[in-house]
């Protein structure tokens, strides 16, 4: 057994006991009928009173074998419109970067809250895609329009 297994079960338990309102997170079911604790799907609600509100944005969270020494990889759908999301959907966030602020003690809850924060407060310093970054810097009206369109696409029921 590994730290990885103990820790992932612990994260599942903690999430079950306590998770932030409006979020969901669950391990994916595999073909053989087990749940893969290294592959999760989750939903991030946009904060109220922001451009991102009234929608739940789907992400996948992939925990590497070396987790918790190494951080999980968080992805939105490909081409998700946000300055800090790569075209592939991968989220560029310091707490998810081993070279930057990742620490093994960071929990699933902290990760999803971190991603929620990032939605409305993009980081100028680390652009990850051209369209959203350019719009954000140079054409705020276009940026807001695109974000709102995207919010509609992922509107919460």
């Amino acid at each position: 057994m590994s730290l990885n297994q103990i820790r992932l079960q612990e994260e599942r338990k903690q999430w079950r006991k306590d998770h932030p309102f409006g979020f969901y997170a669950k391990p994916m079911k595999t073909a053989d009928g087990s749940l893969d604790l290294r592959q999760w799907t989750a939903g991030i609600p946009g904060k109220q009173n922001t451009l991102w509100a009234n929608a739940v944005y789907p992400i996948t969270i992939e925990f590497p074998e070396e987790y918790p020494s190494k951080p999980p990889k968080v992805r939105f759908p490909a081409n998700f419109f946000h300055p800090n999301v790569y075209p592939s959907g991968t989220v560029c966030l310091s707490i998810l970067n081993e070279e930057q602020d990742w620490r093994p003690a960071i929990t699933l809850k902290q990760i999803v809250l971190g991603v929620q924060d990032l939605l409305d407060t993009p980081n100028d310093e680390s652009p990850a895609q051209e369209p959203a970054y350019r719009a954000y810097k140079k054409d705020r009206a276009l940026y807001e329009k695109k974000v709102k369109e995207q919010a509609k696409k992922y509107a919460s029921a």
Binding site: Q5, P27, S34, L35, D36, L37
Partner: peptide, 8 residues
């Protein structure tokens, strides 16, 4: 769990 963090 079985190996590879698969929950049964």
């Amino acid at each position: 769990q079985k190996s590879n963090s698969k929950l049964l």
